[in-house]
């Protein structure tokens, strides 16, 4: 099985440990993984802002790089949805779907393709799980991360009230409408605090960057951690 890793640009530069954790998990299951160095960004920021011709250039580049793998795995549901849901929208090439269908977010790859329900990790903390909108509503990822987290030893997994409500990130939305976006972050963080969790985790570093950014600005002590980093704790 030829598996390629896609590490989104902002994880590459800001949260490299998430990439490291992903590699560690995949290696545990005896996969030979490749990380094509020509990769950069999936094009989502441009696509979501309406700059589709710019996004298209990157989409084409992306498909060229990843064309020959059996699977492409990424620790980001957001980028996965860009590729799997939106590439076919901007690239009219018939073969697009053949390649994009092989792209999986890490937790769904583990549970649905590898059929693994535990990474034998241990995490002695209380953790609230945050559903990223792209995971939940574009890709229908709801159970995969929960199953994997539940099987982490010593973890206390908590649900957030109104858990399917957006954290307010939304890419450029967060800077175009900072006040609205911040209010949404506030509601989310209020509900996270209510769980009493020490950590909040998610399939997406982008949500965590937003939630975490709001929390540290406002002195909230809850820490953010990407799900891969919990699952790689073995």
């Amino acid at each position: 099985m030829k598996v390629a890793l896609f590490i989104p640009c902002y994880i590459d530069q800001f949260f490299p440990d998430v990439g490291g954790a992903t590699v560690k998990i995949l290696k545990k299951f005896d996969l030979k993984i490749d990380y094509p160095l020509e990769q950069t960004c999936c094009g989502q920021p441009a696509f979501n802002s309406g700059y589709w011709s710019e996004a298209k250039v990157l989409a084409e580049k992306f498909l060229k790089i990843f064309r020959n793998y059996d699977y492409i795995v990424s620790p980001s549901a957001s980028c996965t949805s860009m590729v799997r849901v939106f590439y076919p929208e901007i690239l009219k090439d018939e073969n697009t779907k053949e390649i994009t269908a092989k792209f999986f977010e890490l937790t769904e790859f583990l549970t649905k393709i590898l059929r693994v329900e535990s990474t034998e990790a241990e995490f002695n903390h209380s953790v609230a799980y945050h559903d990223s909108c792209h995971a939940l509503r574009e890709l229908g990822i709801k159970d995969s991360p929960r199953v994997l987290l539940r099987n982490v030893k010593k973890i206390k997994l908590l649900e957030i009230e109104d858990g399917d409500r957006c954290c307010g990130f939304g890419g450029t939305f967060a800077v175009k409408f900072p006040e609205i976006s911040t209010e949404m972050a506030k509601s989310k963080v209020d509900n996270i605090i209510k769980t009493g969790a020490e950590f909040v985790t998610s399939t997406d570093s982008s949500c965590l960057m937003h939630i975490g950014g709001y929390m540290s600005k406002n002195g909230v002590k809850v820490k953010t951690i990407h799900i891969a980093q919990i699952l790689a704790n073995f």
Partner: peptide, 23 residues
Amino acid sequence: LKAWSRTREFPQIAEKSFREIWE
């Protein structure tokens, strides 16, 4: 980016990028 930073911290760029660590 003021529009972000007024209400939210922006993360620091990491010492090393993932691709450096990978290589």
